[in-house]
Nucleic acid binder design. Structure first.
Length: 557
RNA sequence: CCCGGGGUAGAGCAGCCUGGUAGCUCGCAAGGCUCAUAACCUUGAGGUCGUUGGUUCAAAUCCAACCCCCGGAACCA
């Protein structure tokens, strides 16, 4: 019955700053989803890795006066360590500069070429004589030929919105050096997107699990029509073009100075990482890629949308028509910080390492999931973080568990049924949470957890068991048994979201829930009699108001 | 310019597809309770649903125009 679930998580740039926007945007949602599926007994493969190629890496290397290789060496282990600390449960977190990845990309390239989805073409590109290299269009500025705007970019004028072609810009110069650039002919491989238009339209029409705005955006792209795009660039850092495997007539000049470009190559990491994982774990990656019963879910931010809704399915189809295509594309909007965009250079950022060290992993996981930017941009503010942590996580959830365990300390519970109305309500909340987890609606999932602890708090206030402890021990035990039932429900629900806290609860009550049971409430009811409350500790610590000012002052304006 | 998203009480959001004079959480105020991390429970105040028009007996919800914010195959989740 176990289903195979492949989870592809967007690949962060190796030198990038993994801030809480990344966490909220795709890392945490993916992890919760993965934990949930393992929990209910599915066979999960979750992969990602550091994106080692692309301009930002070479720029960073130049800045630090070193090589891209050194940058990868320096930052990749940091990412690995960070994800371990954040509890992001990758089955494999690799990187794109491995031999394996290069080989898979080259195989992929050759196959798409053989299947005639790739053609070659000569174009004019901006060339910087002073730097002796071709510049991406966006690295070129000049005067717009239409409106005269002086800061127009190589491919587009931000002032009048005109799309510009190479050569149209007047007084074109490099935006980093300010030196003039000229046009120079260069030959590249292009991916033939128009050829895939029909296929992709059909593919899109079959998707049912995408968020509405994701579908709309994708349809918008298709309606405009896809254009062929170059998949190689004049670079020296990236996956080499496998010229010796290319038929004579399809070779291009100067291929040794060109590389397969990141947007085509990075997504292939999902496949190459699966292959690497299978080699290391003695498993067959094909079970996850050539299998009717497998489900593929991808997690990323909205900037990555078309690469995954159109380009990756298109590439896969060009590679092999039998390979499994993405099913769920769980794409988030952006997280802002105190109303501003995250920006490392402007100092508007919160380092993931720091916030977890300072405030604990689970409170961060909790809050970022609560405000997950699922359908619209969300905002992280320290005031809200402190408020929600204190008022929801601690006062509502933590407090219910704490007051129940404090009252129930030392009690031995008999086998028996809880209050049937309560059982019904708990059962409904559990079913609701499960549904939200399955459909990747994580905000609603957190809300349903809170509705259970709120139910518990209400129950205790109504029943006032503290009066009965002496007067009516039987009634007292009955009420506490019901409360423990709700604590067990919370334990069940909280696991994918806050694994550390779940473990703490298990320690305190002496009971573990290894896997998500088929009949949840029946199982929980059976567990009640096994509960022995030991030492009770607070799960989370309250945050002082001073935190708000202290942290806000660190964010530069 | 174009494509997509958003604009609903002090804050964060749901409702909009399938019209019927607004809902959730937090905050705030009052009361209750004391097992609990000044927590918990109850009640209440607070909104011309971005603007302007249109359709309709009736619009946050449908239509049109406009304004503001975010993203869009450089970098960036």
């Amino acid at each position: 019955m176990a289903k195979k679930i492949f989870i592809g998580v967007a690949w962060p740039y190796v030198s990038g700053d993994i801030h809480i926007g990344h966490l909220a945007g795709y890392l945490l949602p993916a992890d919760i989803f993965a934990r949930f599926h393992r929990y209910i007994g599915n066979d999960v493969l979750m992969v990602s890795g550091s994106d080692c190629f692309g301009t930002p890496i070479t720029v960073e290397a130049d800045k630090q006066n070193t090589t891209p290789e050194e940058i990868v060496k320096k930052y990749h282990p940091k990412n690995v360590e960070l994800f371990k600390k954040l509890g992001i449960s990758f089955d494999l977190y690799t990187k794109t500069d491995t031999e394996n990845h290069k080989k898979v990309v080259q195989d992929f390239f050759i196959k798409a070429l053989e299947r005639e989805y790739i053609f070659k073409k000569k174009t004019d590109q901006y060339y910087s004589g002073s730097e002796k290299r071709f510049l991406p269009d966006r690295y070129v500025v000049g005067t717009c030929p239409r409106c005269g705007y002086e800061d127009a970019r190589g491919d587009q004028c931000d002032n009048c919105g005109s799309v510009l072609h190479p050569g149209e810009l007047k007084d074109a110069k490099g935006n980093l050096t300010g030196k003039p650039v000229t046009l120079k002919q260069t030959e590249h491989y292009f991916f033939n997107w128009p050829q895939l238009q029909k296929f992709l339209e059909k593919y899109i029409s079959k998707q049912k699990k995408w968020r509405p705005w994701v579908m709309n955006e994708t349809k918008g792209w298709l309606e405009k029509g896809l254009n062929a795009r170059a998949i190689t660039r004049d670079l020296d850092w990236g996956v080499e073009i496998p010229t010796d495997r290319i038929p004579e007539g399809m070779r291009i000049e100067g291929a040794e100075n060109k590389r397969i470009y990141v947007w085509f190559e990075a997504v292939i990491g999902y496949l190459s990482a699966s292959i690497e994982w299978s080699g290391k774990n003695n498993k067959d990656w094909k079970d996850f890629w050539y299998n009717e019963k497998v489900e593929h879910a991808y997690f990323m931010g909205k900037d990555n949308l078309v690469f995954h809704t159109l380009f990756w399915p298109g590439e896969l189809h060009a590679y092999d028509e039998k390979i499994h295509l993405p099913d769920s594309l769980i794409i988030n909007q952006f997280l802002n910080l105190e109303g501003n965009k995250f920006s490392r250079s402007r100092g508007i950022t919160i380092d993931s390492n720091y916030i977890v060290d300072a405030y604990g992993l689970d409170p961060v996981r909790f809050y970022l999931t609560l405000i997950n930017p699922e359908n619209a941009d969300a905002n992280f503010s320290w005031a809200d973080f402190v408020g929600k942590t204190n008022d929801l996580l601690i006062s509502n959830l933590g407090n219910f568990i704490n007051r129940t365990l404090t009252l129930a300390k030392g009690l031995k519970f008999d086998k028996g049924k809880p209050d049937s109305k309560l059982e019904q309500e708990v059962s409904e909340i559990i079913a609701m949470s499960k549904k939200h987890l399955e459909s990747a609606e994580f905000r609603k999932y957190v809300e349903s957890i809170l509705s259970l602890s709120q139910l518990g708090n209400k129950y205790l206030s109504e029943k006032e068991p503290w009066f009965l402890k002496e007067k009516n021990a039987i009634k007292f035990k009955e009420i506490m048994s019901n409360s423990i039932f709700m604590v067990l429900g919370l334990l069940l629900l909280v696991k994918p979201l806050m694994p550390e806290s779940a473990e703490k609860i298990e320690k305190m009550i002496g009971v573990e829930i290894g896997s998500w049971p088929k009949k949840e409430t029946d199982y929980l009811i059976k567990l009640i009699s096994e509960v022995r409350v030991g030492e009770v500790k607070h799960l989370f610590n309250k945050l002082e108001d001073e935190v708000i000012e202290k942290e806000r002052s660190k964010i530069k304006k």
